[in-house]
Each structure stands twice: as structure tokens, then as C-alpha cells.
Design a protein around this nucleic acid. Structure first.
Lengths: 144, 144
DNA sequence: CGAGGGCCGTTGCAAATGCAACGATCATCG
DNA sequence: CGATGATCGTTGCATTTGCAACGGCCCTCG
């Protein structure tokens, strides 16, 4: 048996982040799915459409680190459910701009408080270290 | 258009963690895949077998937060590649204990330094805040 | 103009994934 | 014992995923 150098998987950052990310997302994901029939990808698209100026798919793709095809399919599902409209950009007909419908805006207005509450709970758990955490995360991956 | 409360997706913890986790894993994942033909799941199983006392699949499942079926399939692939052996536990024949082969130990011995180097780079990027980060992570998800 | 090259969104396809169902085995307890 | 319920690992299946290829559109430059 070859001798192995010591290694601590539990403290290994890529591993820890994967586990925690899954934990943090799952709780919310289940709620959004069960109560609203919405996936995480759809939720991210919704947020972007809600706060951007009728962004095109490629804008969302970049901001939210979501595969091209994933954005496309999420947008199509949201359209099918009546939460948003797609319209071709007048100046560049390759671009497809997204806008919330009334139903979409209403849905988002219900989703946001849930997300905020969850965030508040997490920040509460972190206590004063919350700011430090964000700083540390910035070092691992600077945000635009 | 309904009025929406402000919301900052970029600073939203579940989102940030998902993005960072993907970033941190991808670099390593690609290396392991291209250079060694190993997936992340397989890598995690390897580490467990290397450092545990011939753990059973269910032990790995718990420690590493990997789906039952994912562990099973990863183990089968590793066995097929000749990196580990499966043997039925003598006292409980439901359990399947895993052991590294020579080739498996050799492979792991090559993978570990790469992982360590990556961890070192990340810790370097964090500087003295590294300890704080781990503390914060513990608050979000206590480790066993 | 118009031909070439790049960007946009969609879609087909193979592989990965999650989940439930299953057979085999064990532990409990009457 | 023997029956019941739980645990373990595998597998079938429907869904999701990532990737590459494609058609439509725009821009540049001769």
C-alpha cells in the first residue's frame, strides 16, 4: 500500500462550498418548487427581468452564470406559464428582450420577501461576521 | 406594473455560494477529468476509501453528501478502471466495503498534491481571513 | 451592394442526475 | 424460530444538463 499524504476533505474549500451551496439552495428551491412551481433557474431569470431594463437572454446569461440553453429554456417555461413576454429588439433583431407580465410581477412580489427572510435568517446566524464573510467571498470571486 | 421591493441578487448568499462553489470546483474538475479521467464524485469516493478503514458505500454516502446511486455508480466506475475493489462485509453481508488497489493508491497519491496546491492557492488569496471564513462556514453548516 | 465572420437564441442528442422500486440481508420481538 | 420492518446497494426510468450545431441576423470591409 502506497503511503498517502494527509488530506482533510472536510476542510477542503471546493468541497465545503459545494456542500453549503447545495444546503442553502435546497431549502429555498423546495419551497419555490412546491408552492410556486418555479425552479431556481426560473427564479433567477425572474429576478433579472424584474430589476433589469427588459434584459436580453445573453445579458442574463452573463450576470447570473447560467448556461445559454438553461436561460433559454427557463425563459420559455416562464413564458408558457404567463409570467413574462419575449419581444424581439427593434434595433437588433437577434436580441430577445424579456418583460414581466402582471402575473409575473405579482409572483415576484411574493417570492422576494421569502428570499429576504431567508437571507435575514442566514445573516442572523452569522452575526457580526457577516460582513467579513462577504469580504472573504469577494476575494475568492470578485463580483462585478 | 406592480412595485417591487429592492433586492440584491449579487449579495444573496445562496446565489453567491452556488456561483463560487461552481467556480472553485470547475477548475479542479476539468483537470481531474482531462488528465486522469476522474469525475468529482469519483474523486470524493477515492479520498474516502483512501483515508477511511475500507468504508461501505453508505458511510461514504453520509460523509460526503453524495446521492446513494451516485456513490454506487462512482464506485462501479472506479472498480471497472481497476482503482478499487468491492468486497462483501463478513459480518453484515448487506455492506459492500471498498479498498484501494495499488493503482488506486498510486492515483490518489498523484491527485492529493494537486488538491493541496489548489487549497493553498485559495488560502493564499484569502490571507489571514482564511480562519474567519472557516468559522463563518461552520455557522452556516456545522461539520461533523 | 454582397461576402465573410461574429453574435444571438433554439434545439437535438448523449450523458448525468434524482427518485422510487426492488431483492437481498439483518435485527427485533412475540 | 418466524414474521415484520428496517437497511443496503443496484437499477430502471423520466427529467435535467451541457455541449455542439444550426439558422437568422448584424457588422465590416472590399
Amino acid at each position: 500500500m502506497t503511503d498517502l499524504p494527509a488530506f482533510d476533505l472536510e476542510g477542503y474549500l471546493p468541497y465545503r462550498f459545494t456542500v453549503i451551496a447545495a444546503e442553502l439552495s435546497d431549502g429555498l428551491a423546495r419551497q419555490y418548487r412546491d408552492r410556486f412551481g418555479i425552479s431556481i433557474a426560473e427564479w433567477r431569470v425572474l429576478v433579472n427581468v424584474g430589476y433589469g431594463e427588459s434584459p436580453a437572454l445573453r445579458d442574463i446569461e452573463r450576470r447570473v452564470r447560467l448556461e445559454k440553453s438553461k436561460v433559454s429554456r427557463a425563459a420559455s417555461r416562464l413564458e408558457a406559464k404567463g409570467y413574462l413576454r419575449k419581444e424581439v429588439d427593434a434595433h437588433d433583431r437577434r436580441l430577445l428582450r424579456l418583460t414581466l407580465t402582471e402575473a409575473g410581477a405579482a409572483l415576484l412580489a411574493r417570492l422576494i420577501p421569502i428570499a429576504e427572510a431567508y437571507q435575514a435568517e442566514l445573516v442572523g446566524r452569522l452575526g457580526p461576521e457577516a460582513t467579513l464573510l462577504h469580504a472573504a467571498l469577494d476575494r475568492l470571486s470578485p463580483r462585478g
